[in-house]
Amino acid sequence: MYNLENEKLKINVKKIGAELCKIVSVKHDTNFMWNADSNVWGSFAPNLFPIIGALKNNTYILENESFELPKHGFIRHNTDIQLHKQNENSLVFKLTYNEALLKMYPFKFEFYITYKLNDNSLEVQHTIKNIDNKVLYFSLGGHPAFKCPVFENENYDDYILEFEQIESSNTHLINPQNGLISSNTRAIFNNTNQLKLTHNLFNDDALVFKDLKSRKVTLKSNLNGEILSVSYPDYNYLGIWAKPNGDFVCIEPWLGIADNENTNQDFKTKEGILKLDANKTFEASYLIEINNAHLH
């Protein structure tokens, strides 16, 4: 376990998957992250690369060859990821391609994830370096799970998510049989910027948004006000998810999306796929900001 601390916050990051697992108030010891109860959902904040969600039959096609990848890719349970460098306010982890990964993802790459503390916020930065001599195709995202409710006097349905802009948007429904995006949608926002949290909101799996105007979401309690916010200016898809019986909510900035049921599985034309030219570097960051009212 790796630790980082400043005057307001301390974080813990697991070596496996370089997974963030705690954001804690230094003064009050309040933890804002889900505890990864394995009876409900045993993760904290998986890092998603080089795909988001599920592939059709766990398979994609590249240059007429088939490859298999697990849901959300191969970072989240990876034991080869290493601490690359550390200073007083940041931790940088690195994974370099290897022979085993080339069998499922035939690209030479370096994956970095940086956790940087600054005052009451944590920046999570993804960096991809293409060290191959061909175009690299990938998706990328975060999956942080925040405790909800945070305080003992609250219930789950005391909470809302407040978006920075008024939205009129549908969720793209996930087929429960295969985890793929179906052609069906359901209205979630009707000219509002608030989403009331209830456990049954997630009976049909994650809410998946492709067209939100907002790039910031705030978790708010009716009893204790604004708890934290997630800003994601570099990400154009957003997932909101919890287990129906889980006291948490995931706010997931994505660059990419699970396969559509009707996909032809061609990786190069997959919805949301990013392209990175040889010897180029790509960066994207999201920011978790804890409201100062809960840190004093």
Rank of each mutant, 00 (worst) to 15 (best):
S139G: 01
D259Q: 11
N203D: 09
K56V: 01
L238N: 08
N64D: 15
G142L: 01
L276M: 10
Y97V: 10
P253N: 02
L117G: 08
F267Y: 14
T192F: 06
V249S: 05
Y237L: 05
T263C: 07
E7V: 03
N193E: 13
S183G: 09
I290Q: 01
Y159N: 07
A54H: 12
Y237I: 04
E99I: 09
K220S: 14
D211F: 09
T198A: 06
A18V: 00
I181F: 02
P70T: 11
K213T: 12
E261S: 04
N222G: 12
E65I: 15
N6W: 01
V249R: 02
D29F: 15
N64G: 04
I257Y: 00
E252Y: 02
Q86V: 08
S38F: 04
L95N: 07
Q194S: 11
R76P: 01
V24I: 15
L140M: 13
R215P: 03
N133Y: 09
L9Y: 05
K56H: 07
T59E: 13
Q82M: 11
N130M: 02
N87A: 04
L276W: 03
A18E: 01
G239A: 05
I51C: 04
R186L: 15
G17N: 00
I188P: 03
L212C: 10
T281W: 04
N130C: 03
L161C: 08
N6P: 01
N292E: 15
N292G: 07
K243E: 11
F93V: 12
V208M: 13
A278I: 10
I257S: 02
L255M: 11
